[in-house]
Amino acid sequence: MQKIQICIQKLENSEFFRSFLDQMQNPNMLAKFLKVLGPETKMLMVIYGIGSIESFEPPRLQLSLAILIKRKFDWIGEIQVFDPIISLMESKVLTSLGCSVLSINEQGRRQS
Rank of each mutant, 00 (worst) to 15 (best):
L21C: 12
E40G: 14
I85C: 15
F73N: 05
L30Q: 11
N26I: 06
I69C: 08
M45F: 09
C99I: 03
L21R: 09
M29S: 12
N28P: 06
F33I: 02
N13L: 13
K92Q: 14
I50T: 11
F73L: 12
Q80E: 13
V101F: 00
Q80F: 01
L21I: 10
D22Q: 14
I67L: 15
P84R: 04
N105P: 04
I104W: 05
S19K: 13
K72P: 01
E57R: 01
M24T: 06
F17P: 01
L44W: 05
G49P: 09
S96H: 09
Y48G: 10
T41V: 08
Q23R: 14
E78F: 01
M45E: 12
K70L: 01
F56E: 13
I76Q: 03
K32A: 10
L65D: 00
E54A: 12
T41I: 08
S103K: 10
K92P: 00
G38H: 04
L63Q: 00
D83A: 09
S19M: 11
E106Q: 14
E54D: 15
Q25P: 00
E90Y: 01
I53M: 10
T41D: 12
L44A: 13
I104H: 09
S103W: 05
E78H: 02
V81S: 03
I85K: 11
N13K: 13
M24N: 05
N26T: 10
L102Q: 03
K70N: 06
F33L: 04
I47K: 06
E78P: 01
L88S: 14
L37W: 03
I53K: 05
Q107M: 09
P59L: 04
A66Y: 03
S87V: 11
M29N: 15
M45Q: 12
L61E: 07
V36N: 11
K92Y: 07
E15D: 14
T95E: 14
I76S: 03
S55E: 13
V93S: 07
I67A: 07
V46M: 08
K70I: 02
E106W: 06
T41Y: 03
L30R: 11
G49N: 14
I79F: 02
E54C: 12
L21D: 01
Y48K: 11
Q62M: 15
E12R: 15
R60K: 06
S64I: 00
G49F: 07
Q23N: 12
K32P: 00
P39Q: 15
L30T: 07
G38A: 11
L97N: 06
L21G: 05
I53H: 02
M29G: 07
I67H: 02
M29D: 10
K32H: 01
L94C: 02
L97G: 05
I76D: 02
M24C: 12
F20S: 10
D83C: 10
M45T: 11
N28Y: 11
L97Q: 08
G77T: 01
Q107T: 02
K72G: 02
D22G: 14
I67G: 00
E106G: 06
I79E: 06
L94R: 01
V101Q: 00
S55F: 08
I67K: 02
S103M: 12
L94Q: 00
L30S: 07
Q25V: 03
E54W: 06
I85F: 09
Q107E: 06
E15V: 13
V36K: 09
N28A: 15
N13M: 10
P39C: 12
L34T: 08
M24L: 13
L34E: 12
F20A: 07
L44T: 13
S96W: 04
F56P: 07
